[in-house]
Structures are given as structure tokens and as C-alpha cells.
């Protein structure tokens, strides 16, 4: 059972020790990772994915439940405790959706009958439905990302989930995040999206390859997050209408559709 994951400081790109000693993340927590491109967000995610033991370029160490993890946990997909949704938009494997999901289920020691459930969940996140006889390489960006999300949620199903820029996916990000973050999981989400960043309780700020600081979300920010979410919902509704060829008859600027706070 995973109670916590800890990041022990390494070095940034200039070789300087990072400005923290240790970050402990407990089960049930969603933590954000933010920073400009090239600031080391993905490298931090990678250190966690491979449970770095001062043997990566950043020299960080990752502990599970406060202890050095068993080496098997690093390498064997059947024992792996970490699921990762990376930035990739497409599959490169030349095989059918069904064959791929069955193979992955086998790698992870899961029931191959999960296939239908995964496809159903993926189709709830995207436009054109995925069928199991489709070849992976012909899936659109949105279909691929949805399938990756559903695969992480059901087949890689792990107590620690790493998410790299879910907002770039062109899929329903809130639904996707909900699907990925089951009960008691530890979620680390790399994001450029203020809505997602402010939904977390804490966020790690990255700079020149190292952790610069960790800040807790303030009450003010939490309030702002609620407002931003409403705007986002509006945008999503308009987006869906545009996508389905409907005319937009109201907008933000039309006070009737807005919640009272915005109309003021």
C-alpha cells in the first residue's frame, strides 16, 4: 500500500543543489508541476516514473513510504506502481486497438477482458468513436489521447499517476482527469493551464531544470479557480456547438447565459 512518495533534492541544469530538501506527497493528493518549457517538468516526471536513485542526470532520489523502493518496482511492469500519461499525441505501434490493449493487459498482469471497458471509457472522452478492429496508427490525435487516458485508468491502474499536459489533448480534460484520479491515488499533473494548476492544493514551480519552490494554493486562488472553471465550461459548450455545426446564439458577452457574478 502506498501512503506517500518523497522527492529528495538533486541538481538543476547549472549543477546547483535544488532549493528544497524533500517534498512528501501523500495518498489522495493532487499536486501540480508548473514552469516554462525547458524548465525540467518532464524530467521531474521521468525521475518519478523510473523511481530515480541518484542515478539520473538530475541526481534526485525518490522514496516510497519513506524508504528506498525495491528494484523490481522500478523495472517490472507487473509490479509497477506508477502509471504515466505522457505528452505523446499518437501511437506508433502498427497493430489493432484490441491486440494492443490485450498485449498491454498481459504486460501489466491484468485481465484481457478489460478491452471493451477501456474502449467504452475512451469513447466517452472524444468525438468519433474508436472501434477495436481499428489500427492504432490511423487514430486521430483526440482518439489516441482518449485511448491512452483510458488505458492508464484501467490497465496501468496504479496508486501513483503522472500526467503530462492533459490540456493539449483536444479531449474533455475534466472528465479525463476524473477518470485518471481514482480514490486515494497520488496524482502529479504537469500543466500550463491555470485552471488545472489552481485546482491542485499545492504546486511545484520549476526553473532551469530544478525545483524552485513549492507553493500552496491560497484561498484567493481557490475562489479564482471556481470562476475560471465556469468560464471554461462556457467555452467547452461553445466549442461543442461549433464542432457540431450549430450556430452560436449567445456568448460571454450575452448577459443571459452568464452566471450573476460575471454579469456584474
Amino acid at each position: 500500500m502506498i501512503q506517500s512518495i518523497s522527492i529528495l533534492a538533486g541538481r538543476n541544469k547549472t549543477g546547483r543543489t535544488e532549493k528544497f530538501e524533500r517534498i512528501d506527497i501523500h495518498c489522495g493528493e493532487i499536486i501540480g508541476i508548473v514552469g516554462p518549457t525547458g524548465s525540467g517538468k518532464s524530467a521531474l516526471i521521468e525521475d518519478i516514473e523510473q523511481l530515480a536513485q541518484r542515478d539520473t542526470t538530475t541526481n534526485r532520489q525518490i522514496l516510497l513510504n519513506g524508504r528506498i523502493p525495491d528494484p523490481d518496482l522500478r523495472y517490472d511492469p507487473k509490479k509497477k506502481l506508477i502509471a504515466q500519461l505522457s505528452q505523446n499525441m499518437n501511437f506508433l505501434a502498427d497493430m489493432s486497438v484490441e491486440e494492443f490493449l490485450k498485449l498491454h493487459a498481459k504486460c501489466r498482469g491484468k485481465n484481457p477482458n478489460l478491452v471493451d471497458q477501456v474502449i467504452e471509457a475512451a469513447n466517452a472522452l472524444t468525438g468519433e468513436p474508436i472501434r477495436k478492429d481499428m489500427n492504432l496508427t490511423i487514430l486521430s490525435g483526440g482518439q489516441s489521447r482518449s485511448l491512452m487516458v483510458a488505458d492508464v485508468a484501467f490497465i496501468s491502474d496504479s496508486p501513483i499517476v503522472l500526467i503530462d499536459e492533459i490540456e493539449n489533448a483536444g479531449i474533455k480534460k475534466h472528465e479525463a482527469l476524473k477518470l485518471l484520479s481514482g480514490n486515494g491515488k497520488i496524482i502529479l499533473v504537469v500543466t500550463h493551464d491555470p485552471i488545472l494548476a489552481l485546482m491542485t492544493k499545492r504546486r511545484i514551480i520549476m526553473k532551469t531544470g530544478g525545483v524552485e519552490k513549492v507553493i500552496a494554493t491560497t484561498e484567493n486562488e481557490m475562489e479564482l479557480s471556481v470562476h475560471l472553471n465556469r468560464i471554461d465550461q462556457e467555452l467547452l459548450q461553445i466549442r461543442e456547438k461549433v464542432r457540431h455545426g450549430q450556430e452560436i446564439t449567445s456568448s460571454f458577452f450575452n448577459a443571459e447565459t452568464l452566471s450573476p457574478e460575471f454579469a456584474e
Partner: peptide
């Protein structure tokens, strides 16, 4: 890093099918 974690895990499994004792 260019492929998904799932594809990486399948790739790794295929390598072990061909060479069960290697270090990856």
C-alpha cells in the same frame, strides 16, 4: 519518450521474449 508508457511496456516485454536474461 516519443511513445506512450503502454507501448514502452509492450516493447520491453517483446525484448524479454527474445532475450529473457538481458538487463534493459
Amino acid at each position: 519518450d516519443v511513445i506512450s508508457q503502454a507501448e514502452r511496456e509492450i516493447f520491453r516485454e517483446r525484448i524479454l521474449e527474445m532475450n529473457p536474461n538481458c538487463r534493459i
